[in-house]
Computed example of a mutant assay.
Amino acid sequence: MIKRICIMLLVTFFMPVSAGAYPYNQQHTFQAQLETARANTTIVTAYYTSRFEGTRIQGIGTGTLVGDGLLLTNAHVVGSNTGALHIDVTTYDNVVHDGTLLRIDRSVDLALIRIDSAADGFALSGTQIYPGMQVMTVGQPQGLAHWSFSEGAIVDISRSCIMTSGERWTAIMTDAQSIHGNSGGPLINDRGKLVGIMRGAAEGYSFAIPIEGVREFLQ
């Protein structure tokens, strides 16, 4: 059977889709996981300073803490530019940390950053994912007062996607709605464990880098 292919438009951030964010105090399936999830999710802002352009924001996205002061985000959030890179990482308690870029791999769209944080971070899931599994995304959507907590289900565990650059990659496809600025945020299961890193959205669906790719990058 020929797999259906999704075509994604992803330049720097997610495509805007209808808002799936709601305030933290509302009732929902993942209520028990929200306290931990929000504490392990950050805002990532990347600045570049050059002699010709001065200092400008290169990208704003979401970060996913994985323990020992380490966090993951998308490589496209950090960007690629000439000049000096500076990264601000804002935790849920509104503390701004200086971030140090440790590693970046644009082929898998992942970046690893270190901050001074004692947060436990998300545990990486070791269980098999499947279509219909309930999942949640967490992030700091641009232009909204509240962090976003969007629930949904996995639609496909290995959706083949084509970027506008022509690059192909295999994604977890979910119907959990993502919002502009959620790039690099966590996709978690109903036990609060990490099953993927959000990367893009199109046609009312969101797409995440599978946990296997995340493990390979971290190792």
Rank of each mutant, 00 (worst) to 15 (best):
A46G: 05
V78W: 05
P16T: 12
G204A: 00
L34N: 13
H28T: 06
H76Y: 15
T12H: 14
A171L: 03
C161I: 13
E216K: 15
A145C: 01
Q27D: 13
N182G: 04
S158E: 14
D93G: 02
I172T: 06
S148V: 03
I5M: 15
N74M: 01
A171Y: 09
V95T: 13
I115S: 03
I157F: 00
Y48L: 00
H76P: 03
Q128A: 14
I211D: 07
Y24H: 07
A39G: 03
V96Y: 03
V155G: 11
V17P: 07
L144M: 13
Q33D: 04
A202Q: 13
I157M: 11
P186H: 02
Q142T: 11
G204L: 07
T174M: 09
S165H: 02
Q134N: 14
G200W: 02
L144G: 06
A46K: 01
A176Q: 05
I2S: 14
I43T: 08
T170A: 08
E35W: 02
S148G: 15
F30A: 02
I7M: 14
T174K: 04
H86R: 14
Q177M: 10
V214N: 04
E53H: 15
V44T: 09
S117W: 03
Q140N: 15
I211R: 11
R199T: 09
T36E: 10
R106H: 09
S50F: 08
I188K: 01
T127S: 15
G54C: 10
R4W: 00
R103A: 13
A75N: 01
G20Q: 10
Q142W: 08
N94F: 11
H76W: 06
T137F: 12
S158C: 09
L124N: 01
N25L: 12
T12I: 08
E35V: 09
G99P: 01
P210D: 11
G143Q: 08
V77N: 05
E212C: 01
I197V: 14
D116C: 03
Q33R: 07
T42S: 10
